[in-house]
Amino acid sequence: MDERFATPKSMKKVILRVIRTTLLQLGSATKVELSKLLGISFPTVSKIIAQMERDGEVYEIGLDDSSGGRRAKRYEFNPEHMLGLAVFLEENETVYAVFNCVGEVKEHGTRASVFQDAFNSLTELLHNILLEFPKITSIAIGVPGAVNNGRIFHIPNYQSFHDFELKTYFEDLFSIPVVVENDMNAAVLGFQKRSGGEDKQSLVYLYSGKNGPGAGILINGDVVRGSTFFTGEISFMPLYDNQNFHQAMYQGNKKNTENPTIHEKHEIQAISRLIASLVAIINPHTVIFSKEEMNQTVLNRIAIESAKYVPKEHLPEFIMSDWKQDYLHGLQRLAIERMITGIRIVDELE
């Protein structure tokens, strides 16, 4: 790491970030190991570690065996030093989790939906959680809509949230970094993390839920957002001469929330055409479905139907997963990344 071309303040932030990340990845390290691994001078590493130790961010866990000189101190990151908060908003509920730097959940809860009275209920919920857990240093919020850098610009069912700068609103209110993410983008990130799959795989997560069809797409390990952040809005895909995917799935009816399992012939045909389109365009390794909406018999039928449009050998693997857990895990991942890479906004302004 070249330390010559940055201001002291910005360089300190960079070094803090890489030391935090490295300690979390390795579990523990000595100052010499950090200096060699990161290419940062030993005096700089020593200074930063000393400050982190005073702040309670790292602690000494013992001395290494001597190799002829003074025994080196080994340090470990304190996972309880900072906490994160993940919240996702659904039509009939609001789900949240408080967790530490390694993702261990400290509290998990479900509340009534906040969509009915716009921001009052959500603001009150976040305020109460932050009072109970003052170590929270980042928040990730998931929404069933398209998001561009924290602004919700397409959320048809909830007009009070449409075209709203949710990230800016809560950062100004709480002085804590906030990430706002589309539900399916968070879910596909969470699945990748929970499954322990290869980072460079291409994945598509399909889900209808309470708000209509959506997709999260990961190509070579990166979320695909598109030029206007509209990627994944598969409802608009024209699968027939006079029907898009949403129309083909529901045939003029509302989604059956009492029995969300996909089983109708027209649903299987629509999904199979969608799968064939995805294979021809991005050729994903895996397509993930919510186990709430899918079963193995239907997956087998989708595979047979999809093979009518594209050669069978190019079809992806079909997997069922727990959408809520994937969603929360993805939000946790985003919050932890923001937690490790940044500090409280009020500190940045000083």
Rank of each mutant, 00 (worst) to 15 (best):
Q332S: 10
P144K: 06
G190E: 10
F289E: 01
P79A: 07
A29P: 13
Q269E: 07
H314R: 15
D199R: 07
Q251F: 02
D322H: 12
E57R: 05
R54L: 15
S272K: 01
A29G: 13
L274N: 02
S113D: 07
V32S: 15
G103A: 06
Y169I: 04
K135I: 01
L63P: 00
K36I: 14
Q25Y: 12
H314I: 15
R151E: 11
G150Y: 15
G226I: 14
S227T: 07
D241N: 07
G209V: 01
R301A: 06
H329F: 11
Q296F: 06
F230N: 11
P260M: 06
F318T: 13
K193N: 13
S46K: 10
D172N: 10
E53Q: 15
G56H: 01
D183E: 15
L331M: 13
N128V: 09
E53D: 11
S46I: 03
F318D: 02
A187H: 13
G252Q: 07
S113I: 03
V204G: 02
M339H: 10
F245V: 02
I282S: 12
I136L: 02
A186V: 15
A307D: 07
T257Y: 03
G103I: 03
I139N: 03
S306F: 12
P260Y: 07
Y309A: 11
E305Q: 13
A50M: 09
D222Y: 12
E267G: 05
D64V: 11
D241L: 09
I302R: 01
E80M: 14
T257M: 06
I48H: 11
K47R: 11
F161S: 00
Y96A: 04
A97H: 00
T137W: 00
Q325K: 10
E132P: 02
A72N: 11
N220C: 08
D55M: 04
L125V: 14
V298A: 10
F115V: 01
A270N: 10
I281L: 14
Q247S: 14
Q332G: 04
G39N: 09
A215S: 13
L122M: 09
L299V: 06
F318E: 01
F99K: 01
A6E: 08
P177N: 08
I271A: 04
V58N: 00
A72L: 06
L349D: 06
L166W: 08
K312T: 13
L331I: 07
L299M: 12
L89K: 00
K255P: 04
N185Q: 08
V98I: 09
N149Y: 14
K200S: 07
N253L: 05
I139F: 06
N211T: 05
F88H: 12
T94A: 13
F5H: 11
F115K: 00
G221S: 03
E76V: 07
Q332Y: 04
G27Y: 04
E264D: 04
N259W: 04
G145Y: 01
F229H: 14
P260N: 06
T297Y: 14
Q325D: 08
H314K: 14
N220Y: 09
V279K: 06
R17Q: 03
I129K: 15
E264C: 02
T261W: 00
G232V: 02
P156F: 13
A335D: 02
K9G: 01
P144T: 01
M249P: 00
S175H: 09
I40D: 01
L125T: 13
P213Y: 08
K254Y: 04
A276D: 04
Q269V: 08
A86M: 14
